[in-house]
Design a protein around this nucleic acid. Structure first.
Length: 571
DNA sequence: GCCGTTTTCGGCCCGACTGTTTTCAGTCG
């Protein structure tokens, strides 16, 4: 069993305990355990088999260790079953309605018999919600609005969608005279693959004037709440924006606090407490005396830590690494020297070889791999052996005309159900660069899928595994495979794992990057461009890599063209 | 439920805002 599955069980217990008894500390303990389990470098199953004491793991005590053993042996645990008997499982959906926390949900359950979203909708429409003690008309309206938002599946936005909002909002904020300085915090700043809302920290000479001007912006649909410190808005399209006004001396501590992630902030506050200080969004305090706060660096520094990049702030080991002086030097966008996955109109792209090459030159790249689909992907007009060979001749002819760009003749070859490849070995051996990917039979069981992927890795003719989990954000779950086995195979055979930069893919996901790196694997970051402008997706791939702790040397396409040629010849 | 150079009990990060309230609980981040 994978760690992620064990972690899911702990998270479900946390959800149900929150409803059942509302002991927030116990809930937090279960969630901390789940988070730790997810980011554990080793498999729990292996540790258990080796007779390791699981309670030695941070955030895992005697009781959680016992539960893990039980889960590994039986696939579930008694505590979870008990909770499911006591609390209707669907109440956790009801908790996702904004404004409804555990207390209110249990009150609705007790007094109105509500067990799921449908019950809640009916009760709210009948006016039963407002009749309850402590609830009123406004709450009922908020519930109805929240229900439609939960049901429509809105709630999380792709990072790129959020970036588009930030760009337009930014242009408008720039024009407001009362605003001295602003910055986006939250999961957007941590470059998470999807974001729920935008957190913006604003320093303003005149808060009233700034707030009034912001409310007046054309994108704003509704003012959700408004106080002296905070302004919450809903934009057209439903994205929620939390604006926080801060003084100059607090700008850094506010940015730090609102960037999170929450567990990272809590750990920092504990470090302050250990020294008898207090950390909040206004600064780091010793009594009434502010020790730091104007910049993030000043706060980290007083806590005896180096500044930590936002992408790492997930409480996935970054604080221990920072204390030990072992933070990674994260890969940066300007270190990328080429793109190793791109399509043309020979398969399902929309531009010719030359147009793609031109676009790569505009990005300042030294190389671009043209990797059209193989025949199995018939909807994409995939190419057979003869067509691929002919296409490669075209690519090389164009390459002859270019003196500042290596246009690599490649392919994205399909991995068939049994792990064999969709083109002949001799065809693949004649190419500069071979990406192998899955585009069908996503529902094979873990064992079969692992065999399939490992077979491709061990074929000896593949350079890189394309979008390894094949997930589509908000649309398709990742396929299941034994990650440790696959990553070990990649490390051993020198096959690169692709971090696909398509905004709806972002695949390999960040947590897998971290694990694969520990296993000794290496990576590419590529856009999978289907038209020239798609080469601009590269920043999103770099974001994922940074969240996955990857450094320059982990990423093949940070190499100069000379080194790249050398490495590929050797392989 | 976890944790410990305040150590086996009694803590657990901290503040803003709203709604339904006469002093605060609940939710959110």
């Amino acid at each position: 069993m994978e760690n992620a599955q064990v972690a899911d069980i702990f998270d479900e217990i946390a959800d149900l305990v929150e409803l059942d008894q509302g002991n927030e500390f116990r809930v937090r303990a279960y969630r901390a355990a789940a988070r730790t389990i997810r980011s554990l470098p080793q498999r729990l199953e292996d540790l258990a088999d080796a007779g390791e004491d699981l309670s030695e793991i941070p955030d895992i005590g005697e009781r959680s260790a016992a539960k893990i053993h039980e889960i590994l042996a039986t696939g579930t645990c008694e505590r979870l079953q008990e909770l499911r008997d006591q609390v209707p499982a669907e109440l956790t959906d009801v908790m996702r309605v904004p404004q409804l926390g555990p207390k209110t949900v249990m009150q609705l359950h007790r007094e109105l018999g509500i067990e799921n979203l449908d019950d809640l909708q009916a009760a709210a429409e009948a006016g039963d919600v407002r009749a309850l003690e402590g609830l009123g008309e406004k709450t009922e309206e908020a519930v109805l609005a929240g229900l439609s938002s939960v049901r429509s599946g809105r709630g999380r936005y792709l990072l790129k969608e959020a970036a588009d909002h930030v760009a337009s909002l930014g242009r408008e904020l720039q024009g407001i005279a009362a605003i001295t300085r602003w910055g986006v915090a939250g999961s957007y700043r941590r470059r998470k693959e999807t974001v729920g809302d935008l957190d913006i920290v604003i320093q303003a000479a005149d808060r009233e004037a700034a707030a009034a001007a912001i409310i007046d912006l054309s994108d704003v649909e509704e003012v959700v709440s408004r106080g002296r410190e905070r302004l919450t808005l809903r934009l057209i399209g439903d994205l929620q924006v939390d604006v926080r006004f801060v003084e100059e001396a607090s700008f850094g501590s506010a940015l730090l606090y609102f960037t999170g992630a929450k567990p990272h902030s809590i750990e920092l506050r504990k470090l302050a407490l250990e020294r008898g200080w207090k950390l909040n969004e206004y600064g780091l305090y010793k009594g009434d005396n502010r020790l730091a706060g104007a910049t993030e660096e000043s706060v980290y520094h007083r806590l005896n830590l180096p500044w930590i990049a936002p992408e790492l702030r997930e409480d996935r080991g970054e604080l221990d690494a920072a204390r030990a002086g072992g933070l990674p030097e994260l890969v940066e966008l300007d270190q990328i020297r080429g793109d190793l996955h791109a399509h043309t109109d020979a398969s399902d792209g929309s531009a010719g070889i030359r147009a793609m090459a031109e676009a790569a030159r505009e990005h300042g790249y030294a190389y671009l791999a043209i990797t059209d689909h193989s025949k199995r992907v018939s909807v994409a007009h995939g190419l057979d052996d003869e067509a691929i060979a002919a296409h490669a001749r075209c690519i090389r002819a164009v390459n002859e005309e270019l003196d500042d760009l290596w246009l690599m003749a490649g392919v994205e070859v399909d991995i068939l159900d049994d792990g064999s490849l969709d083109l002949r070995e001799t065809t693949l051996e004649g190419l500069d660069w071979v990406v192998a990917s899955i585009h069908s039979s996503f529902d094979l069981d873990e064992r079969a899928m692992t065999e399939r992927l490992v077979a491709a890795v061990e074929s000896g003719v593949v350079h890189c595994l394309g979008h390894p989990t094949t997930r589509m954000l908000r649309k398709r779950d990742p396929v299941s495979f034994d990650a440790d086995r696959l990553f070990a195979a990649c490390a051993e055979r020198g096959v690169y794992l692709e971090v696909n930069a398509q905004p709806h893919r972002l695949d390999l996901p960040d947590a897998f990057c971290q694990r694969a790196k520990r296993a000794g694997a290496r990576f590419t970051i590529s856009t999978d461009a289907h038209k020239p402008s798609d080469l601009g997706f590269m920043p999103y791939g770099v974001d994922v890599a940074r969240r996955g702790w990857l450094e320059r040397d982990d990423v093949l396409n940070t190499m100069t063209v000379r080194r790249l040629r050398k490495v590929l010849t050797k392989a």
